[in-house]
């Protein structure tokens, strides 16, 4: 008999301003805490959510407060999927340079997408020129050891 997998969803929409990032971070931390994941996984999720939303606010919606950023967390306890959508013009993710290369190391920008790829197991971009960009992040979850961890 196949087991039913139960998915839970948390969604948030907010104006394109960096001042909403603390709210997004608080939601991400709460979602990660409820999953009981180890510290490293929790940090990876939190940092990735902040980067994806920073990207959507600054590069997607160009800080236009009349445009929304939407974030949706979906989890079944074993995997978490996070989608962040903006209403911007879109971009070419393949054109992003490796910020670790010596010639890019001291650049003040260009690390957001690299951070997503480093911390998450899957990162996919869906660019719809007239509607915006959605980045889908997937992390397979490692549970914290019982009795608390680092």
């Amino acid at each position: 008999m196949a087991k039913t997998v139960h998915w839970e969803t948390v969604e948030l929409a907010f104006p394109s301003s960096l001042e909403y990032l603390p709210l997004v971070n608080a939601v991400a931390e709460e979602v990660a805490d409820r999953l009981g994941v180890e510290r490293e996984t929790r940090d990876a999720i939190d940092s990735s959510v902040i980067e994806a939303c920073t990207n959507a606010i600054e590069h997607g919606n160009k800080k236009d407060r009349t445009k929304e950023v939407r974030i949706r967390f979906r989890t079944n306890g074993r995997t978490i999927e996070i989608e962040v959508s903006d209403q911007g013009e879109g971009f070419d993710p393949a054109a992003v340079k490796d910020p670790r290369r010596p010639e890019n190391l001291m650049r003040e920008r260009g690390r957001g997408i690299f951070i997503l790829r480093a911390f998450m197991d899957e990162v996919q971009f869906r660019v719809e020129p007239s509607r915006g960009t959605t980045v889908r992040l997937v992390k397979r979850l490692a549970k914290a050891a019982s009795g608390g961890g680092a």
Partner: peptide, 16 residues
């Protein structure tokens, strides 16, 4: 408590 990639850029700018 946390930093984003924009914040990293701020630190790099100060360092430079």
């Amino acid at each position: 408590s946390w930093i984003n990639s924009t914040g990293l850029g701020i630190l790099i700018s100060g360092y430079s």
